[in-house]
Design a binder for these strands. Structure first.
Lengths: 339, 339
DNA sequence: GGTTCGACGGAAAAGGATTTCCTGGGCTAG
DNA sequence: CTAGCCCAGGAAATCCTTTTCCGTCGAACC
């Protein structure tokens, strides 16, 4: 109703300026139909001159595709979901498909609102990026036939499509690296008992140690994901197991605490004790003394894969199952070979 | 809920099920027109049963508003732009207006693509969230009449609308806090010489010190935004100015380095030297030993203000100028009063 | 009893671009 | 000279919902 002709330039304006009909203008701009080269050029010049940008609202209405996806995330700090977002953007192509970002702040009501809003906008698909490794309940979208891909936190329903990091493999790779560089007395300091990430990593550590024929130094040291816990654990480990020569930590933050704790206990890193963390979180890993070797969860690749799978689901149909992305080990001085 | 149609359900389906015309169904669902309560209820029941969600694509085409904004950001780590995003979401209301998030990765070509894509989608407005305090060149949107608000990094053109933190005021507040808690010999360690944030904070420090009638301990210590620089600076300051009793740092990361450096120089924090940082970045400030008093740049409020101004610009028209949001000081043990 | 008014609901336009179908003119071949 | 064809470009349908403008029916009033 608020009809203003001057505000936005439409294809009608281009057609008028070029002296052709609307349909012809459309064909000229999209390389369709049979037109003289001269006509095509004239229309394109007119469009250029007017700064015409076709409304994707109109074509969406027509074709049913919006070239738009929803990205639901639950992570306020963005430590996990931002890399996922970047990967998704990679997969969606420069700006071909755009993402609506919705931060639910872990509120199911808010999530419902966002989902409804996304469906109203007829997004082509939805990516749900979780904050932790725990499986999350599937989105409830009331029978709407919109493809959904879960990233980082997988869906509890295995008929859904999820993409996750291979945390177990990453932990195993860290241990193998330590073994290969001459470490034999390896301890594992991690987060809360029962946390899904902690569980997966414990499995990886045990697998790799068994393969190397080594015993773990003490049971896994469960605590919190904080530096304080790392410092505390370092003190306890050096006291109870003076022969420890490597510590694998469940996060970079813990590793930083362990690093400080070891120094205060008179151990040098990496000469006496090697250190490996998880997350490869630059501000922590790079500022650590010494810079920290860390298992990168490859979240960007997780996002990229999720984006690709979503596009595939949109264009060709559903690909159920849990897809795993390998971690990659980033080696820094904290795990230099034993002397 | 039986019979979920694979094709999307439109208002025509609802109307058919309720036995009314399409127009009547629309009126029933939107509380318009004159309808018997019974009819209204019947239509609403039909809509409920079919899980009908009206396509905002169609209404956008009709009304010219999409209830959609673009959020252009340039910050890979998200340390600055994520809080801004949250503030923007606050302002945009639960899910009334959704934001397309575009990370340009500092690439002007990419930015161009995103802008074009946003304009094609007929966003109601655009927010540009910068990564640093430096003014940035205005968006080039080829005369399209779309309101733009710049957040955190202001536009170089003062005819644009920008929202920034009052970094100078924040620095002054930090100094005032230190003075009020009994500190007299205050040094200032900050980032690179010439950096806009560093300049603003230096101004704030000088203003507050002058107001208190105090001299600064040495010139501002320019360096980098890293812990290494903080440690180095702490060593230098204690050597050259043994009577220093407080250090104001240009970032939490620097402050952490200073904290470690002071400890290694035999000074206790906060007993001997008080410490204040900037950013209030939880993983650093809270894990610091002791937890760090810090100037919060209030980025969420910056985002909220930007969102509000954008909505205002959309609905009522442009509000040019640079809008300033005050910082807030978050006090933690590192700046406990002098004994 | 006829006229008017209010209540209810239907028909149709609008909004922007694509696409299908169709027309008209010019050219070729028989 | 005429039938037939092809090419360039125009007209109109389409997508989905809202909203305006009417038409109809029942009731009430003079």
């Amino acid at each position: 109703m608020p009809g203003k002709t001057s505000a936005r330039v439409g294809i009608a304006d281009v057609a008028r300026l070029a002296g052709v009909s609307i349909g012809t203008a459309s064909k000229a701009l999209n390389d369709r139909g049979q037109l003289r080269d001269e006509t095509r050029a004239r229309v394109q010049a007119a469009a250029e001159q007017l700064g015409f940008i076709p409304s994707s609202v109109a074509t969406s209405l027509l074709t049913g595709r919006t070239f738009t996806v929803g990205l639901i995330m639950t992570d306020h700090h963005g430590r996990f979901s931002l890399p996922v977002l970047h990967g998704v953007e990679d997969a969606l192509g420069w700006a071909e498909t755009l993402a609506f970002v919705c931060d639910t702040r872990d509120d199911p009501i808010r999530e419902q609102h966002y989902v409804r809003s996304l469906l109203a906008r007829r997004v082509d698909g939805i990516i749900v990026a979780g904050r932790r490794a725990e499986a999350r309940p599937p989105l409830s979208l009331a029978s709407a036939a919109v493809p959904v891909v879960y990233a980082f936190a997988r869906s509890a329903d295995d008929a859904d499509c999820s993409v996750v990091s291979d945390e177990e493999g990453g932990a195993a790779a860290a241990i193998e690296h330590l073994v290969r560089t001459g470490r034999r007395r390896i301890a594992h300091v991690t987060g809360p008992h029962g946390h899904a990430s902690a569980i997966a990593r414990v499995r990886g550590v045990e697998r790799a140690l068994a393969a190397a024929g080594l015993e773990q130094v003490g049971d896994p040291w469960y605590g919190g994901w904080s530096e304080v816990w790392g410092r505390f654990a370092a003190a306890a480990i050096t006291r109870e197991h003076p022969d420890v020569d490597a510590v694998f930590c469940g996060s970079d933050t813990i590793a930083r605490g362990v690093s400080d704790g070891l120094r205060e206990a008179g151990r040098r890193v990496p000469e006496d004790v090697a250190l490996v963390g998880v997350d490869n979180w630059a501000p922590i890993a790079e500022e650590c003394r010494p810079p920290l070797t860390s298992v990168d969860l490859n979240l960007r690749e997780v996002g990229r894969t999720a984006g690709k799978l979503l596009l595939q689901a949109i264009e060709q149909g559903h690909t159920p199952g849990v897809h795993t992305v390998p971690c990659k080990l980033v080696v820094r001085p904290s795990s230099a070979p034993a002397l």
